[in-house]
Computed example of a mutant assay.
Amino acid sequence: MTPTLYVPLVTPFAADGSVAYDALERLARDLLADGAGGLVALGTTGEPASLGEGERQRVAEVVGRVCREGGARFVVGAGDGRGGTGSWAVAPDAVLVSVPAFVRPGEAGVVAHFADVAARSALPIVVYHVPFRTGQPLTARTLRELAAIPGVTGVKHAVGCVDADTVDLLGDRPAGFDVLAGDDVFAPALLALGATGLVTASAHLDTAAWAKLAATGDRGLGHRLAAQAAALFREPNPTVIKAALHAQGRIPTAAVRLPLLPASPQSLARVRLGT
């Protein structure tokens, strides 16, 4: 089966600082038309912590509706799940739930946490494993324990490298458990090792090329896209991506909300804006 390309959407803002829902809908439709197989609303790239509850609900509704009309997969970020996995106007195919940040509960605590969240959720759960942000590493053994929890269907794997645990997990992936490459620079490498999908914010640009990579695993293409991803992540996500989208005329502003600051012109200059 061809790995699925998911794009975790930015949340565009208008000149007055409000959410530009019309631009969000256009962007979502363009990404699907260019080859994305699924979209993620309210992931880290969407700045969910900076949105009000009403804004989060409407963003999810817009993205969910576009996905349903386009026959694409729809995933919603639900934080660490301690407040539940949400009630959405358009039911997602899965919710993305992060390992609890800052508290560093230990690997056994992480397993207990996800067992509790899954028991209370009516929706399938994809674990968001990003130790750079959470401070909590997980071994391949622990990830397999998470895969054994009913209702946990995959992991967005974003460890910032290709380490021994990554190789171990992909070398003996649990049946029915998706391993989605979630660190853009390393996504082509994880795809070559057997990742079942990609969750790449960089695919806002060159979407068709990322879709081709998912379908073919082309090594040269993977090198080019990894280099572009490195340029897009020179400053905190999604600042450079928003600057690039605005430079292309695809969103009305490059604005982000505090505590993020807009990307510098120097970082934008490193991004290849052509298609």
Rank of each mutant, 00 (worst) to 15 (best):
P3R: 05
V10C: 02
T11Y: 08
T11P: 10
T11I: 10
A15L: 12
A23W: 14
R26I: 10
R29G: 15
L39C: 11
A41M: 10
L42W: 14
L42N: 13
T44P: 01
P48I: 08
R58I: 01
A60G: 12
G64D: 01
A72Y: 01
G79D: 08
D80Y: 14
R82V: 14
R82L: 15
G83R: 15
T85N: 08
G86K: 14
S87W: 10
V95W: 11
V95D: 07
V97E: 04
V99N: 09
G106W: 10
E107H: 06
A108S: 09
V111I: 06
H113W: 05
D116T: 10
A119P: 03
R120M: 02
A122E: 15
P124W: 06
P124Q: 11
P124G: 11
I125V: 15
Y128R: 05
F132D: 13
Q136T: 15
P137M: 14
T139G: 14
T139L: 04
T139H: 10
L143K: 12
A147G: 05
A158C: 03
G160L: 05
T166R: 11
V179W: 01
L180T: 05
A181V: 02
A187E: 05
P188S: 09
A189I: 02
G194K: 08
L198F: 01
T200P: 00
A201V: 13
A201F: 05
A201H: 07
S202Q: 02
A203M: 00
L205F: 05
T207V: 02
A211H: 02
A215W: 03
G217V: 04
G222E: 07
L225R: 07
A227T: 04
A227V: 09
A229W: 03
A231V: 10
R234E: 14
E235M: 01
P236T: 02
T239S: 07
I241F: 01
A244I: 02
A247R: 10
Q248I: 11
A255M: 02
V256R: 00
L260Y: 00
L260K: 00
S264P: 09
S267I: 08
A269E: 15
A269H: 14
R270F: 09
T275L: 13
